[in-house]
Every structure is written in C-alpha cells, then in structure tokens.
Design a protein around this nucleic acid. Sequence first.
DNA 1: AGTGAAATTCCTCACGA
DNA 2: TCGTGAGGAATTTCACT
Lengths: 157, 157
Amino acid sequence: MKEISIDKIDRAILGLLQTNADLSVTEVAEQVGLTTTPCWRRIQRLQQNGIVTKKVALLDASRLALTTTVFVQVKAARHDGKWLEQFARHVEGFYEVVEFYRMSGEYDYLLKVLVKDMTSFDYFYKRLVKGIDLNDVTSSFAMEQIKYSTALPLHHL
Amino acid sequence: MKEISIDKIDRAILGLLQTNADLSVTEVAEQVGLTTTPCWRRIQRLQQNGIVTKKVALLDASRLALTTTVFVQVKAARHDGKWLEQFARHVEGFYEVVEFYRMSGEYDYLLKVLVKDMTSFDYFYKRLVKGIDLNDVTSSFAMEQIKYSTALPLHHL
DNA sequence: AGTGAAATTCCTCACGA
DNA sequence: TCGTGAGGAATTTCACT
C-alpha cells in the first residue's frame, strides 16, 4: 500500500466531504481557503488515490420501516481456513447483513443485521444457521441507536 | 411520523443513489425508465421527506491509517434514567466512537470504536472509564472487516 | 409524467505566476 | 502548487401537453 501524504488542507477537504458530499468544489474551496482549480485537483487526487472511495446517499432507516438492528455473535464450528472461507461466503450473501467482522475474543464473528421486525429477523436467523455448521450463536437487539456516523475520525492526521 | 408511499420507481431510485450518489439526475432517470424532470421531482420529494438524509463521501479507513476497529460492550452501573442519560452524553463526545447502541441482553451498551492502533485505543479506553461509573467493560477487536455497507436493504418495500 | 427550453451554476482544462 | 479565465456540460426550474 502506497504512502500518501495528506496535509492540513486535504484533511479539511476530507472532513467536509465526508459530512456533506453535496458541497460544490467552489464551496469546498472557499471553506479551505483555496480557489476552485487547486481544490478540484486535490479532490481528484484523493479519489484516484482511493482515499475517497465513493459518494453515497444515506437513507433514514426508520422512515423505511427498518427499525430492528440486531448484533449476532457466532462461534466457529472449526478453525480451519476452509470453514472460515465458507462461512464468509455464506454470510456475505445475506442482504440483511450490513456489517460483518471476524473477531478476536470469545466469539469469532460479529454481524450487524438490519431488518424490519422480529418476524423478518427470525426468517433471517433460520436461513443463517441452515446449511452451515455453527458452534454457538447469540443475538443481541439494539433498543436505541444513540450514534451512527459514516465519517471517520481524522484527528490523528 | 408521517406515512410516505414509496413505489417501485422510488425504491429503484433509492437503490441507485445509496450505492452511488455521483449519478446525475439524467443517468438515474434513464436507469429507472423516466425522463429527467419527473425523476428530479421524485428525488426532491425523497429528500424533503427525510428519506434521503444526506449525501456523504466514504473514505478508505486503511489508507488513512485507521486500522483498528474495536467493539466495546458495557454494563451499566445503575439503571436509572439519569445514569443512562449521563452515559450517553459521556460516550457521544468521543470522536473515536462511530456507532453507539443501547442494547438488550447481558450488556447494556455496544460501542464501535475506530482508532489507528493499540496505543490510541488505550488512550480512548482510559478516558472512557474515567469520570463515569461502569459495572463491566469488555473489548473485542476486529481482525478483519468482511463486509461494511451503508446501503440499507430495501427488499421489504 | 413528459417535452422543450432557458437561466444558472458547476466542472474542467490551457496557460501563467 | 496556486490562481485566472473561459468553454462546455449539467443542473434546476419553467410553461405547456
């Protein structure tokens, strides 16, 4: 992975864009103290470097009736590479899974699952445990989402 | 919360925009089988309804040296409303916390924390447990991010 | 919803400092 | 690297069908 230098201005640009990608290049330029062209070039560079991966619209889950967030912890049945790979494929395919991590600690995997209600979760759960050998599965329900941010903390740059 | 009707075309528009917000109105219109003006009106309506909340740039955490993701589970010291409120405020303030949920089950809270290394996590951890009374704190480290999506599953619409 | 079109803003590049 | 200027493109918003 290449080393890329991010200066104070790049950091400011990233901070703005990861909060609001609707800002025009001109608006970003003003806020970071540049004119449009050099600002545009920096943004281009950040995109080509893969630092900015994409721009997306964020939707309000509650207004779309997606009110149930569940964290599912899983213990692997075995720890050979083949099983791990198989499980990763199995889980990735579920559209309900929005985040998926291999973990250290007691449980080997953590899944964040987004569904509209308990019935939908049950439907997911049955499909999840079917067709693959799991050692232990625990589901914890989110009662309240207190914070959710797609913006990375850039304070270390 | 108002009832909002989302038809097949709106669902298609949302699906496109939550994957790629760089699409021009004309491009979206083509893909959903409309012309620009009615498509533009639908997008406006989806934004004013608060279904589309914002557009953001997504950044590559690994290229910004944010390679450590930690899930922190916390048991509340007490379960009165005052403590809960106090704890929510305490945690929200940390820039390292990118997601934060009140949970059912054994642990009362789940935090997703993003930092650059172990040292930074330790720095966070010390500040987290300081100044507030906690019953139990467990940290689990993500070894691998297998899936991460900001796109909501709209299959139920 | 669709067409056509006008006004405005934005993006993009060549060039010079 | 930054800034200026300008062409061409895209967005936004009409009035009318």
